[in-house]
C-alpha cells in the first residue's frame, strides 16, 4: 500500500469523524434547553469538527497552495469561535435569557 493510499484513508476517516461531530452539534442545538447550554453545542464541536475536516482535506488534497488555505481556515476558526461565543453568551446572560433553574451555582450573580 502506497503512502498516498494511507493518506487517502486517514483523510477519509478524519472527514467522517468531523462530520459526526457536526451532527452531534446539530442534535445538541435542538435538544439543549437554554441559550447558554446551546452555545456549547453551537460553538464547540465545531472546533474539533472543523479541525478534523481540515485535516481530512489536507490529507486528500496534498498541494502546497491548498495546505496554506486549509491552515488559514483552521487558524481563523480557532481565533474567532471563542469571541463569537463569548459575545452571544454575555448578551444572553445580561438580558436574562437563560434558565436559572438549570444552574447549580451562579458566581456571577452576586458580583
Amino acid at each position: 500500500m502506497s503512502l498516498g493510499t494511507v493518506a487517502d484513508w486517514a483523510g477519509a476517516g478524519a472527514l467522517v469523524a468531523g462530520a459526526l461531530l457536526a451532527l452531534a452539534a446539530g442534535i445538541g442545538l435542538l435538544r439543549f434547553p437554554d441559550t447558554l447550554d446551546r452555545m456549547h453545542a453551537a460553538t464547540k464541536p465545531q472546533v474539533l469538527g472543523v479541525l478534523l475536516t481540515m485535516l481530512g482535506l489536507a490529507l486528500r488534497l496534498r498541494s502546497p497552495a491548498d495546505l496554506g488555505m486549509v491552515a488559514l481556515v483552521a487558524l481563523f476558526q480557532l481565533a474567532t469561535a471563542p469571541v463569537a461565543a463569548q459575545m452571544i453568551g454575555r448578551a444572553a446572560y445580561r438580558t436574562g435569557r437563560h434558565d436559572r433553574s438549570l444552574l447549580e451555582t451562579d458566581e456571577l450573580a452576586d458580583r
Binding site: 452531534a24 439543549f32 447550554d37 464547540k44 438549570l102 444552574l103 451562579d106
Partner: peptide, 26 residues
C-alpha cells in the same frame, strides 16, 4: 482536552434523559 471534552459534549447531546446541570463559576 479538546478530544475528551468534544466527545463528552457530543454524548450529552445525543443521550436520552434530562438536560445536564450547569453552573457559572468565577
Amino acid at each position: 482536552d479538546l478530544v475528551r471534552a468534544s466527545v463528552h459534549v457530543a454524548v450529552l447531546a445525543v443521550r436520552p434523559g434530562p438536560p445536564p446541570r450547569s453552573a457559572i463559576i468565577a
